[in-house]
Design a binder for these strands. Structure first.
Length: 487
RNA sequence: GGCUCCAUCGUCUAACGGUUAGGACAGCGGCUUUUCAAGCCGUUAACAGGGGUUCGACUCCCCUUGGAGCUACCA
């Protein structure tokens, strides 16, 4: 590839990073990595009415947490939003003058015009068109004003916008990396507003000019933009610029196949991270929504994905965000975590109370966690011995007498062991099983009462895991309590 | 309403004219087993419908149906 690959992720600072945004960003990142290109972050904040305080920081933090931080563009350092790179500024609101300049240039080239129509008039036109079931678009009332007249009204201070003067006839054939060819008739394309009456640009002008100025080689964005592609292409052509390549990503869907939205589950990346989904798992999962590198593998690091990524193989249809598969993936990732890393993440997420028993419990449950936040409850259940009826101590195929007898023997057996013996799960289990065999007992009639005595629960981790967690002293205390219950 | 796009198991997907349509999640069954979870093994389940093109269509074309997006001085 001759020109360097430069891809941007350009969200609006209207809240948190949406899961769909994460995938868009990820595909951009993967694409950039695949071709040793640059991944940059631009903030599209031209709509001042929708700006949310702190949103940029949140967006950035989420990207970094997922390991796809930008190489260039807007970055947050020590809490401050700064521009990194020589194609800035990367905050669109700081480019207002540049956009205005381009818009005026377009007026000179006669591919844009001033429009003085009031919001009321526009509403009326729209209502009328809807009533007649006609295509709803601007009626081009001001398109035929002479430039001199229009300029005079502008200099007289009349409020105005600048609109794109798109062709009225023929059609445009466009190429999309994912969809292939798309053709749209110009009769279907509106004279879109480029500069709003407040002087700020709309997305169409700002994104197009900025992509050009920032030398973006590939525009990777959501599906919702395909229908405005003609306008963007027209701007490139009118300005004499070389257009980048485009790739429009299919949408992420709710279970009912509607556009992924709040309501049916969380949509903010933060929500998932806070619940203890590992960023690696989230990335892996989201990458596979709409694309798959092989026929027989599911678990990939993002570096592996980057070497395999082929944007032309991305699916055209939308993909349902299926949390169950995310859960499974997350379990895989948690299990694969080195213990220290695992414990550190539990602490960091506030999912593990301090205390030796809690830490031991955390080690024991690593395999059974779906997400880190589940640890809170599972640790508690593993550490605490809840109250229970004496009858629970009796195994289904056994009797109370036998349970008492086994528990007594077990107590004596365990009392004879060193504290350190309880720290080696493997040996503990092996030796105890051998001891049971030696006694001629059954696993069920011995281990069941032991496990219930240690946990107070019908369902719990195994007796050896529990002993590992309680240690010698607490273990004996619980056995005594059980014996007491049956006395 | 108009325009554009999309369509393989319930879900995510593989297939790039010739396969018994493959994998994964979920489900179901079994093994293991002191319970639960995990694990292991097995299994149910799909080419939306109709026309073409072709010796041969999941793959190409058309129509129908269904779905989605857009249709703002929001992005």
């Amino acid at each position: 590839m001759a020109t360097p690959v430069r891809v941007r992720f350009a969200p609006s600072p209207t809240g948190y990073l949406h899961i769909g945004g994460l995938r868009t960003a990820l595909y951009g990142w993967l694409f950039a990595r695949r071709f040793q290109g640059t991944f940059l972050l631009r903030i599209e904040d031209t709509d001042r009415t929708r700006y949310v305080e702190g949103a940029i920081e949140n967006l950035y933090r989420s990207l970094v947490a997922c390991g796809i931080s930008p190489d260039e563009g807007v970055v947050v350092e020590n809490g401050a939003i700064i521009n990194r790179g020589d194609k800035g500024p990367y905050l669109q609101s700081e480019r207002k003058e540049i956009h205005l300049h381009y818009a005026q240039e377009m007026i000179e080239k006669d591919v844009a015009y001033y429009c003085f129509c009031s919001a009321e008039r526009l509403d009326e036109v729209r209502a009328q068109q809807q009533l007649l079931k006609q295509p709803v678009m601007y009626d081009r009332h001001c398109r035929h004003l002479t430039q001199d007249e229009a300029k005079k009204r502008v200099s007289d201070g009349e409020t105005h916008v600048i609109r794109l003067k798109v062709p009225v006839e023929g059609s445009i054939k466009m190429q999309d990396l994912i969809r292939g060819g798309i053709e749209i008739a110009w009769s279907q394309v509106d004279d879109q507003v480029l500069i709003k009456s407040d002087g700020f640009p709309t997305y169409h002008l700002a994104a197009t000019c900025d992509d050009h100025d920032m030398e973006i080689s590939h525009v990777i964005r959501g599906d919702e933009w395909v229908s405005s592609l003609p306008k963007h292409l027209f701007i490139y052509q009118a300005m004499g610029w070389t257009a980048p390549e485009f790739a429009h990503l299919p949408l992420l869907l709710n279970a009912d196949r509607s556009k992924l939205s709040k309501r049916q589950g969380d949509v903010a990346v933060d929500d998932y991270l806070n619940k203890g989904y590992l960023p690696e798992a989230l990335i892996n999962f989201v990458a596979l929504l709409g694309w798959n590198p092989t026929a027989d593998r599911e678990v990939f690091t993002k570096e592996e994905l980057a070497t395999l990524f082929d944007i032309t193989k991305v699916n055209k249809g939308g993909a349902v965000f299926n949390v169950e598969k995310l859960d499974w993936l997350n379990t895989q990732y948690i299990k694969a975590l080195p213990v220290d890393d695992y414990l550190a993440r539990l602490r960091q997420g506030g999912f593990m109370p301090e205390g030796i028993m809690h830490e031991r419990a955390a080690r024991m449950i690593q395999e059974r966690l779906v997400k880190l936040s589940d640890a809170v409850e599972v640790i508690r259940e593993t550490v605490e011995c809840s109250d229970y009826p004496a009858t629970m101590l009796v195994w289904k195929k056994s009797t109370q007498e036998e349970a008492v007898m086994r528990l007594q023997a077990t107590r004596v057996y365990l009392a004879g062991k060193d504290e350190s013996w309880f720290g080696n799960l493997g040996a503990m289990e092996e030796q105890t099983r051998a001891w049971i065999v030696e006694k001629g007992w059954g696993n069920g009639d011995t281990l069941w009462p032991m496990r219930v005595a240690l946990s107070g629960r019908e369902k719990s981790p195994g007796p050896f895991e529990l002993l590992f967690v309680t240690g010698k002293d607490e273990g004996l205390v619980r056995l005594d309590a059980a014996l007491q219950k049956m006395a």
